[in-house]
Design a protein around this nucleic acid. Structure first.
Lengths: 338, 338
DNA sequence: CTGTTAGCGCATTCAA
DNA sequence: TTGAATGCGCTAACAG
């Protein structure tokens, strides 16, 4: 268990060289080392099972090889999928990923931001709800936003092209002959993603004379019984108001989708028969639930991977103007909109 | 962006005190400080927006306030749920969580273990598949296993009481009148959890004269088309062999559950009508899919939280003999076994 | 090619 | 109650 860790000095002594040579060896500066020394060092490292102390390294050169992913909700499959791409990218580039779950609380967001400064994190990927530009502006590390913009904060952002996605989603439903469409969002609260999706939807519906669209916002906390009730109520109202029209629902993300399906079940409405259904996000179970739910899939892994690359270029000093890297969503048609 | 970080010396200078006093202040050693000094330091820290450098601290005192969670598959909701408990516990105790996703690869497991040594991690929570005791024994930090035992490695473990869980699951199906039960496992490979579940199942079935049970193992990679095919084939065979009997399926985890539901759909078998279904793990969608799937729920959050506490006691030097902390599973009855 | 030296930011003796 | 000095393990000048 508690094997004392050996240091660079132990290695140097065992190999009968100076510690500088060991340091050089560790940093791949092989050109500056004779074969004999390389051999001895390599041997010493193995026998001692030596691992360089990253803390000391970080202290010395100011780079910790740590980056962080700050997310509002670890339960959200979107974040998890993005994280997989991130993780791979980190590994490919010798970085280690620190995951910070803020649980949708701005205090925790603040807390983590400070913590990350303490740990000399080199960069941060930020998936945020409420962060204000002020708290971000004097962070000592580069930052890349994921999915959502932050008002007045000019930073790189990687995510979905929400306008394009909302466009193909809405147009598809219109073309498929749905006449009354209910868009269920979570509280918009100025979140750019939600705004883009909702506004595009509204605009397109307005452009079609004989179609009606309605947007509702529900509260965030799906564990609140009021959430379920209000969801049900809204859907029921909508159906009653638009009796006789072909109706469909669009849900703004995976979590809402799950809860909406539950509500529909309680209302005895069958997806794809009594009412159409289209979901932003394409979780694994979307293919199964209600005989398959039509959805907009995001290239989440790709988003994570490129976000890291963008961050890395910033870490390496890139001064290019802030960039927006938006990926197109893909429409996956299933039975819920037949 | 690149605000230079201030150090303890900057604070000391601004407050016109020695850096020792600042250090004392930072470490809560208030008894040794005059009110005047405390006041000045507090002020200086605020104006400089100073954060102590954790790397330096760690280097100095050898404790990094970092712990790690090593998991085989970040996609697995089980791990994520456990992680939430862990995260909360970490926060409650001033630790930061490092998440290491090994992607079910032993090389990556090795890689991370070494990395964690580099970062002076104080302890590790380990959810592993393949780790051998040898590679773990000379890790310089305490370790608590989650969910699965490691052969020949005597460490604390926190997880589900798999024997109890498999017992209530199997007995429930037997009492509910199912006569032929197919237990679908992933490759067992000596994984303790799977062994416990499967063996208990076999034992109980054997004890009932007029019941038959069968266990199959499918490959891990659900993206392999062969996986889907073989799953379907197995189920089909099973049904044909036991024509005329009331049949049920038990799936060993959430991932298998999802895939089995898909297979059943392709085979045109309706859960709860043509065949019973019970799932270990109770993912969110279990309540919805196939009109509700009966499942065994684990107290995942609790598992994470206590695992951290156990680890913390080890970090603080506890030499108590290795402990097993096993929680009971809860049977949630839904329509799939009606 | 190789080793000696001087800090990185902090906590901790030890004196005052 | 306070501060000066030392060293944690490492890298980066600087000499040789």
């Amino acid at each position: 268990m508690s094997v004392k860790k050996s240091t660079i000095i132990d290695v140097a002594n065992l190999a009968k060289v100076g510690k500088t040579s060991v340091s050089r060896y560790l940093n791949g500066d092989f050109d500056a080392l004779s074969d004999s020394i390389k051999e001895r060092i390599s041997h010493a490292i193995k026998t001692l099972d030596y691992r360089p102390n990253q803390m000391a390294r970080s202290l010395k050169r100011g780079s910790s090889k740590l980056i962080a992913f700050v997310i509002p909700d670890i339960t959200n499959p979107y974040s998890i999928e993005v994280m997989q791409g991130l993780e791979k990218a980190c590994q490919d580039h010798g970085y280690t990923l620190l995951v910070c779950n803020t649980n949708k609380s701005s205090e925790r967001e603040q807390y983590y931001l400070q913590l990350l400064v303490s740990y000399n994190v080199e960069g941060v990927l930020f998936h945020t709800i409420k962060a204000s530009a002020n708290s971000l502006k004097h962070c000592p590390f580069p930052m890349v936003l994921i999915d959502r913009r932050v008002k007045n904060f000019n930073a790189d952002i990687v995510g979905l092209d929400n306008i394009q996605s909302s466009t193909i989603a809405t147009n598809y439903l219109i073309d498929a002959g749905f006449e009354a469409i209910l868009f269920i969002s979570e509280a918009i609260n100025g979140i750019s993603t939600r705004l883009d999706r909702v506004n595009t939807f509204k605009k397109l519906i307005r452009a079609h004379k004989n179609r009606v669209g309605k947007v509702i916002e529900i509260t965030e906390d799906s564990h609140d019984p009021a959430y379920q009730l209000s969801l049900e109520q809204h859907i029921d109202d909508f159906c009653k108001t638009h009796r006789g029209m072909r109706k469909a629902i669009v849900s703004i993300n995976g979590s809402v989708t799950l809860n909406t399906v539950l509500a529909l079940k309680r209302l005895n409405l069958v997806c794809g028969k009594d009412i159409g259904f289209l979901s932003f996000d394409d979780p694994q179970w979307a293919a199964i639930i209600s005989d398959g739910i039509t959805s907009i899939r995001q290239p989440t892994y790709q988003i994570g991977y490129s976000a890291f690359e963008l961050l890395l270029s910033r870490i390496n000093g890139s001064k290019a103007p802030a960039q927006e890297l938006l990926y197109s969503g893909e429409l996956i048609i299933r039975n819920s909109t037949k």
